[in-house]
Amino acid sequence: MTQQRLGGAEFAPETTYLNTAASGLLPARTRAALRDELDVATSYGTMGHDYFGPADAARASFARLLHTTPDRVALGGSVAVSTALIAASLPEGAEVLLPEGEFSSVANPFSMRPGLRVRTAPLEGLADAVRPGTALVAFAAVQALDGRIADRAAVRDAARTHGARTLLDVTQGAGWLPLDAREFDYVVCGAYKWLLCPRGTSFLVVGEDAPQPAALHAGWVAGADPMQSNYGPIERLAEDARRYDEPHAVLSYAGAQHSLALLEETGVAAVHAHNTALAERYRAGLAELGHEPLPAPGSAIVTVPGLADAHERLAEAGVVAAVRAGKLRAGFHLYNTPDDVDRLLELLK
């Protein structure tokens, strides 16, 4: 008998879906909201009846999940744009420290910004690599490639000791890993993975004590009164993080408010316990089969060398996983069950 999903009736995938590290599944309530919004768009335009309401609800929900306040949260469409805003705010010659092999949406904006000195270090030694003169340490809470969890406290403390600022990417952790945005200067998040939102949904958190970057891409939504900020230079920007808002995609945020509400109702602690238990079940089964995953203790993402050739066989059986850098990657989320783990292991025999 199929075991109950933590997400309950919100999910009934036709596949055994283990690829949340690439993109998440939409809950039923989110799908219904998107359909409703599409109906509105066919008669009332693509800004809907209420352009700001659903987006502000999503902003508030994300803030609660990350233990911050809505006035610190800006809405966007991609992590790379938010990261580029922070990169542009750094002075000429500033040193930015990154983990080796960091995801491109975090690494590229700093590498592409002329005049910055970008340095890398192994993730495990990132805290030790912070030095006097380091301006910013930018890193992911969870590595997308192999699921390794960064020692966030050690990096944060080392940065504070040397007067460096921090940027934390929570794209692979928000929704299942307990996180507190208040511990870092800047937080970026793509919400279409573990937060179960549609593509085109992302968030930027600007800490209260962090240097406030210039609102370089400020459009009409960044004004203190957006409806009075349509023509010419904006006379008065929003006083809070809304000044960094991008004009948001209505459909994305119409769905996001419902996905984030589901995660709030379920609770990050419950999702964390569920996901990590499934990942441990998978690791134990791999050991019995003679396979050793890459080290990533406590992670919901499990990546295994030597199994890339199983990907096609899994896909034919309706099991959706991923191959990254020649390794098989699986991620376990609230819509997965022990039955999903056992099915995967059976197919890997």
Rank of each mutant, 00 (worst) to 15 (best):
residue 123 L to G: 08
residue 135 A to M: 13
residue 159 A to K: 04
residue 132 P to T: 11
residue 144 A to F: 03
residue 127 A to H: 01
residue 142 V to F: 06
residue 114 P to W: 00
residue 117 R to F: 00
residue 131 R to Y: 04
residue 133 G to K: 03
residue 126 L to E: 06
residue 120 T to N: 07
residue 129 A to V: 07
residue 126 L to Y: 02
residue 161 T to Y: 11
residue 113 R to F: 04
residue 135 A to Q: 14
residue 163 G to T: 04
residue 129 A to N: 07
residue 154 A to S: 12
residue 127 A to V: 10
residue 162 H to N: 05
residue 142 V to T: 13
residue 127 A to I: 14
residue 124 E to Y: 02
residue 128 D to N: 12
residue 142 V to C: 07
residue 140 A to D: 11
residue 112 M to P: 00
residue 160 R to A: 15
residue 156 R to I: 06
residue 150 A to Y: 01
residue 137 V to A: 15
residue 115 G to Y: 01
residue 132 P to R: 10
residue 130 V to I: 15
residue 145 L to S: 13
residue 146 D to F: 09
residue 138 A to I: 04
residue 115 G to P: 10
residue 116 L to V: 04
residue 145 L to D: 14
residue 147 G to N: 09
residue 129 A to P: 08
residue 126 L to T: 05
residue 126 L to D: 04
residue 126 L to W: 08
residue 127 A to D: 08
residue 130 V to N: 09
residue 150 A to W: 10
residue 133 G to D: 08
residue 118 V to C: 12
residue 150 A to I: 03
residue 136 L to C: 07
residue 132 P to H: 13
residue 124 E to W: 00
residue 152 R to Y: 00
residue 135 A to E: 12
residue 162 H to P: 03
residue 152 R to T: 05
residue 145 L to E: 14
residue 130 V to R: 12
residue 128 D to A: 15
residue 145 L to K: 10
residue 142 V to G: 00
residue 158 A to C: 02
residue 129 A to M: 02
residue 161 T to W: 06
residue 156 R to V: 12
residue 119 R to P: 07
residue 126 L to F: 05
residue 147 G to V: 05
residue 161 T to N: 09
residue 163 G to S: 02
residue 145 L to G: 10
residue 158 A to W: 06
residue 154 A to Q: 12
residue 130 V to M: 13
residue 141 A to D: 11
residue 140 A to K: 03
residue 114 P to N: 01
residue 122 P to R: 08
residue 125 G to H: 13
residue 120 T to R: 14
residue 117 R to C: 10
residue 159 A to I: 02
residue 145 L to P: 02
residue 137 V to C: 11
residue 147 G to E: 11
residue 156 R to P: 00
residue 153 A to T: 15
residue 111 S to A: 14
residue 159 A to M: 02
residue 130 V to T: 10
residue 159 A to P: 10
residue 136 L to A: 04
residue 121 A to S: 13
residue 120 T to L: 05
residue 112 M to V: 00
residue 160 R to C: 08
residue 116 L to F: 05
residue 112 M to C: 05
residue 134 T to W: 06
residue 119 R to C: 12
residue 138 A to R: 01
residue 125 G to Q: 11
residue 137 V to W: 02
residue 163 G to Y: 03
residue 156 R to S: 14
residue 143 Q to V: 04
residue 145 L to T: 15
residue 139 F to H: 02
residue 143 Q to K: 10
residue 134 T to C: 06
residue 131 R to A: 15
residue 117 R to W: 06
residue 162 H to F: 15
residue 146 D to A: 07
residue 144 A to P: 01
residue 155 V to H: 06
residue 155 V to Q: 05
residue 124 E to Q: 14
residue 131 R to P: 04
residue 124 E to R: 11
residue 154 A to R: 13
residue 112 M to T: 10
residue 152 R to P: 00
residue 111 S to F: 10
residue 146 D to P: 03
residue 137 V to H: 01
residue 142 V to H: 04
residue 149 I to H: 05
residue 150 A to M: 13
residue 113 R to C: 13
residue 139 F to V: 00
residue 152 R to F: 03
residue 117 R to L: 08
residue 122 P to I: 10
residue 117 R to S: 11
residue 114 P to C: 02
residue 140 A to V: 01
residue 134 T to V: 11
residue 151 D to P: 02
residue 162 H to A: 11
residue 151 D to E: 12
residue 125 G to M: 05
residue 116 L to S: 01
residue 156 R to F: 04
